[in-house]
Computed example of a mutant assay.
Amino acid sequence: MNPAADLAFFQNLYDGVSLYVVPEPANAGATPAMQPEAAAEPNQAAVPAPVVPAPPVQPAPIAASVPASASAPTPKPEPIPQPPVAPAKLPSLANMPLQPTAPPPAAAVPERQPVVLTLAELPAAATAPAGRVQPTPTQSPVAHIPFSTLGSNPNGLIILVRLPENDFRKLPRNVFLNNILKAIRLIVEDVVLVNIEHASYPVALCTLRQTLAAKQFLAFGKNLLDVAVYTTQPYEPVLLFGDTAFLGAGEISMLEYDAGRKKQLWQAMQRMFM
């Protein structure tokens, strides 16, 4: 069969339709007959085949799909995980011993030495009036009269008062008393406060000397010391029995607001201690 003649025949038969003839190999047999239903009719549009959606493609890992030479940004290296560090275990307050912390050693402060007052030359006390019983430093009819004290300096100045218990406890903070002591270079710690607990009787000198060795007395009130009741005058310092200096004055509550009596007291203290 002549292929060129066949081609011309089919071109005339299918006018307007472009045919493509697959060349046969040299050793091939006769060309199979065309199937009538395979030929398309003239001027008939080809029907497109239905589009079947392709199954979704699973995205491959980026490391496998992206070549090494791609311009994608280089991922940052992941930090190397560090092993967890256990927090430092603080000591529990409940298990700590309750011991006070010793303060740092302070500079050594010299202990204040009590001031010993030097007595001036004092006149001797007058003798007791006739008919009056004068107690002695060792015997007295009022030796049983009780008293209370504040202070720890048995060799210091003895201050005699007669006050209610509450007022006596407040006496170390009395401004007037502290000013009087400051004037003779003393403080409250240098003296012993003695409160007579009887409403009218004095305290006995022999009783005081059982616990106190002082020989200097400053009395704020009347009838406070048995050996000075009949032989002394207010604001006149005297020497009793050759070794005991005594100065009587008004009550502290009265002296605080009386400038005249305060002046008298100061002048008497100058004669006694200076």
Rank of each mutant, 00 (worst) to 15 (best):
L193M: 03
V57M: 06
N178I: 01
H144W: 09
P202Q: 05
M254R: 11
K76N: 14
I145N: 04
A46E: 14
E189N: 13
M1Q: 08
Q267H: 12
S92C: 01
V66G: 04
L255D: 01
A107E: 10
L239N: 08
G16V: 07
V66H: 08
R271W: 00
Y14W: 12
M1G: 11
S65R: 14
Y257M: 11
T118H: 08
P123T: 08
V57K: 12
G29F: 02
A268N: 00
A125D: 05
I158W: 00
V66K: 12
R261K: 15
P36E: 13
A143P: 02
P32Y: 03
A45R: 05
P81H: 00
M1D: 09
L13Y: 08
Y257I: 14
P53L: 06
M272K: 00
L218Q: 01
V66A: 13
E251Y: 07
N179F: 05
F241S: 12
M274N: 13
P56I: 11
L157I: 01
N174R: 05
A259V: 15
D167M: 07
E236V: 13
A126G: 10
A68H: 07
P105L: 13
L93V: 11
D167F: 03
E165S: 13
P103F: 00
Q113V: 15
T244V: 15
T232V: 08
T127K: 13
T31Q: 08
N195Y: 03
P67F: 02
A38F: 10
I159E: 00
S148F: 03
L150V: 11
H198T: 05
A94V: 12
P110W: 05
N223W: 07
F9T: 15
M34S: 09
Y20H: 14
S148R: 15
Y201T: 09
A106E: 12
P59Y: 09
D190H: 04
E41D: 13
Q113R: 15
P48I: 10
G260Y: 15
P104E: 11
A125M: 02
A249I: 00
G248C: 07
A102N: 07
S152M: 04
